[in-house]
């Protein structure tokens, strides 16, 4: 594969801060890959200097900018193993998390990277709950979970469209149970209504539709469910008020528990 600009840096002994300054300038110019190599050089020539520690992290950042995610993660991991207590350790954990986060592929393919991103993001939040990295990590956690929910939905829809209703219902129930706060819940509820109507389980269909209506009244999905039930002659109106409100609370509790 093309190995980009010449990253082999002449092996010339130079004082640490000089190489560090060069590397920093190269990075400012946007030549991230070359900068990463130069930061490595600092650490190699002066492993015990203060500059070595800083350049280890800078190399990780430069690799991240150059989309060299694997190198960025391994540099950051090395920094954490050598300097676990250092004050920029949170940044190192965060860098690992976003390196995985940016490699997430579409739901049709293996989501192993998404799971790695989720684990790394959760580590950032668990270790450094107050750090500013944690706030961004929490946001990214929601997006990652939303993506995993999207994968469940993708498979659920595939089963539904082939009329494997049992498989589809279980998949959509997973989304409602495990990914209750994601953007896929309204659709999951509607798909459950579709499956139950296809199976002929009208009472289940109305129950799910009423929860959908109660929690997402304005959503198109509720509109779809409403149209489907009325078209099939399953009364939805009385189903909503017949139910004692405590049932809705229990259902909400289960979703947003």
């Amino acid at each position: 594969c093309a190995n980009g600009p010449d990253t082999s840096v002449a092996y010339v002994e130079r004082p640490a801060e000089l190489i560090y300054a060069d590397a920093f300038a190269t990075m400012e110019r946007g030549q991230y890959q070359l900068a990463a190599a130069q930061f490595d050089e600092v650490e190699r020539q002066h492993p015990y200097s203060e500059w070595a520690r800083r350049s280890m992290l800078m190399a990780a950042f430069a690799n991240y900018q150059a989309n060299k995610y694997d190198e960025a993660v391994s540099d950051a991991r090395r920094f954490i193993s050598l300097h676990p207590g250092n004050r920029s350790a949170p940044y190192a954990y965060y860098l690992i998390a976003i390196s995985y986060f940016e490699q997430i592929v579409d739901v049709g393919r293996d989501q192993q990277i998404t799971q790695q991103a989720l684990d790394a993001l959760q580590q950032v939040v668990r270790r450094y709950p107050e750090s500013r990295y944690a706030t961004d990590a929490r946001l990214k956690i929601d997006m990652t979970r939303d993506h995993l929910a999207g994968k469940e939905m993708d498979i659920g829809r595939w089963y539904l469209r082939r009329n494997y209703h049992l498989a589809a219902v279980n998949r959509f129930q997973n989304v409602v149970r495990d990914y209750g706060t994601t953007s896929h819940v309204p659709e999951a509820l509607h798909r459950l209504v579709e499956a139950y109507v296809a199976l002929g389980l009208d009472s289940e269909a109305t129950q799910v539709a009423s929860v959908l209506g109660y929690n997402f009244p304005g959503s198109d999905w509720y509109q779809n469910s409403y149209n489907l039930l009325t078209r099939e002659g399953i009364a939805i109106e009385d189903a909503v008020n017949q139910r004692d409100p405590s049932f809705i609370e229990r259902a909400m509790q289960r979703i947003f528990g």
């Binding site: 829809r157 309204p186 798909r191 579709e194 099939e232």
Partner: peptide, 21 residues
């Protein structure tokens, strides 16, 4: 089976991100 019905499933999908190759 008689209780079952033919349902044409809504084609709209909730969008997801992720880099498409």
């Amino acid at each position: 089976l008689e209780d079952g019905r033919m349902v044409d499933y809504v084609s709209r999908e909730t969008p997801t991100r992720g880099r498409e190759l």
